[in-house]
Amino acid sequence: MNAPHTLHVGLGDRSYPILIGPGLLDAGADWRTHIHGRHVLVVSNEMIAPLYLSRVMAQLGGLHADALVLPDGEAYKTLDQIARVLEALATLGASRDACVIALGGGVIGDMAGFAAACWMRGIDFLQMPTTLLAMVDSSVGGKTGVNLPAGKNLVGAFHQPCAVVADTDTLDTLPDREYRAGLAEVVKYGALGDADFLTWLEARTEALNRRDTAAVTEAIARCCAHKAAIVARDETERGERALLNLGHTFGHALETECGYGTLLHGEAVAIGMCQAAALSARLGMAEAADGERLARLLQALHLPVAPPQGLDAEALLAHMRLDKKNLGGRLRLILWRGIGRAEIVADVDESDVRAVLETAA
């Protein structure tokens, strides 16, 4: 196997590597060094475990290792499932030098990471993302948490992994819909801060749609490099890191209102980015043509650009009021000045947001 592509998230004594490449699940020599104690709990789900769990466990010889398989899907990203992870750690006898390995997509990564943050006030966890969305976004940066009926990711913690191991071979078993959802987060990086990358994506839609290895690997590496740089400058989202939420306030509201799992996260983000672009145009911040260009790229990647029909604008707005970026009871959104120029906009008038939501309804 060729040496993996390696990036670093620079956070002082909490810095960690991102390894990207094929065959990494079977290459324990590349990642076992990041496990410091003898207790390891591998957390996966019912879809991923039959495919990859035995391979990861085979690399943990000599350690006191166990596995926990959770139900698959956003609907199970709950405190009840976190309790199951904590009970499994207790049964394992996990000490403060234990490590939790998150083997799966963003839901597993968020839950395993949150449980690791809670166990004995914080133990190591290692991200092994198996979806494109998790590889380019949720596995990097230390955001962990769970959903409540009132909204997405309202309970959580910042808890950085000790390493991210992205085995690109796992994308071969990813269903088409899940793969496309991941492409929405790829597009996000170009839309929020790298116009050249968005142009690069426009030129490679065919290659990305057929999962060309070189194109997908390059896209993952560029997204991770972009996010690693932002996280190093703003770990706990006091400023610049909030830009990574372009489309997410609208998108999270859609996920909550539609019912978790009805829209995949990436699908909701794709729609949300288009709504953020429409609001930016309404406020005179950007040309409508920029939003149209973004929508064309998303459509070329077989992603939705408009919400399901019949949603209630007031219900969506109520969900948006619970967004963690809001301050002083006023909406604070990530909008843009055009492709590659996202910015944080405070005190957004709800009437303008409502107009965008009603237009899309």
Score class of each variant (00 low, 15 high):
Asp167Val: 12
Asp167Asn: 11
Asp167Gln: 12
Thr168Arg: 14
Thr168Leu: 12
Thr168Trp: 08
Asp169Leu: 06
Asp169Lys: 09
Thr170Ser: 12
Thr170Gln: 03
Thr173Ala: 14
Leu174Asp: 05
Pro175Ala: 11
Arg177Gly: 04
Arg180His: 03
Arg180Asp: 01
Ala181Cys: 13
Ala181Ile: 02
Gly182Ser: 01
Gly182Glu: 08
Gly182Met: 08
Leu183Met: 10
Leu183Ile: 09
Ala184Thr: 00
Glu185Ile: 04
Val186Tyr: 14
Val187Arg: 02
Lys188Asp: 09
Lys188Pro: 03
Tyr189Glu: 11
Tyr189Phe: 15
Gly190Trp: 11
Ala191Arg: 06
Gly193Pro: 13
Gly193Ile: 10
Asp194His: 10
Asp194Trp: 13
Asp194Val: 01
Ala195Tyr: 01
Asp196Glu: 14
Leu198Met: 07
Leu198Trp: 07
Thr199Gln: 12
Trp200Thr: 05
Trp200Glu: 03
Trp200Met: 06
Leu201His: 05
Glu202Leu: 00
Ala203Trp: 03
Ala203Gly: 12
Arg204Gly: 01
Arg204Tyr: 03
Arg204Phe: 02
Thr205Val: 07
Glu206Tyr: 11
Ala207Ile: 08
Leu208Ile: 02
Leu208Met: 09
Asn209Gly: 15
Asn209Pro: 14
Arg210Phe: 03
Arg210Ser: 14
Arg210Asp: 11
Arg211Val: 06
Thr213Phe: 07
Thr213Arg: 15
Ala214Val: 13
Ala214Trp: 00
Ala215Cys: 14
Ala215Met: 04
Val216Met: 11
Val216Trp: 04
Thr217Val: 10
Thr217Asp: 10
Thr217Phe: 00
Glu218Met: 06
Ala219Tyr: 00
Ala219Ser: 10
Ile220Arg: 02
Arg222Pro: 04
Arg222Cys: 07
Cys223Gln: 14
Cys223Arg: 10
Cys224Phe: 07
Ala225Phe: 13
His226Phe: 15
Lys227Gln: 09
Lys227Asp: 03
Ile230Arg: 08
Ala232Thr: 06
Ala232Leu: 00
Arg233Glu: 10
Asp234Val: 05
Asp234Thr: 00
Glu235Pro: 02
Thr236Met: 08
Thr236Val: 10
Glu237His: 07
Arg238Tyr: 01
Gly239Cys: 06
Gly239Asn: 03
Glu240Lys: 07
Leu243Met: 09
Leu243Ser: 11
Leu244Asn: 08
Leu244Ile: 10
Leu244Glu: 09
Leu244Tyr: 04
Leu244Val: 05
Asn245Ile: 12
Asn245Cys: 13
Asn245Lys: 08
Leu246Ser: 06
Leu246Asn: 08
Gly247Phe: 14
Thr249Phe: 12
Phe250Trp: 12
His252Ala: 02
Ala253Cys: 03
Leu254Gly: 07
Leu254Thr: 09
Glu255Pro: 00
Glu255Thr: 05
Glu255Asp: 08
Glu255Cys: 04
Glu257Lys: 13
Glu257His: 15
Glu257Trp: 05
Glu257Arg: 10
Cys258Leu: 11
Cys258Ser: 12
Gly259Pro: 14
Gly259Ser: 02
Tyr260Phe: 15
Gly261Ile: 14
Gly261Pro: 03
Thr262Ser: 12
Leu263Lys: 06
Leu263Trp: 00
Leu264Arg: 15
His265Ser: 02
His265Trp: 01
Gly266His: 08
Glu267Val: 01
Glu267Lys: 02
Val269Glu: 07
Ala270Pro: 10
Ala270Leu: 08
Ile271Val: 15
Met273His: 04
Cys274Trp: 05
Gln275Asn: 06
Gln275Trp: 14
Ala276His: 04
Ala276Asn: 01
Ala276Tyr: 00
Ala277Ser: 13
Ala277Val: 09
Ala277Gly: 07
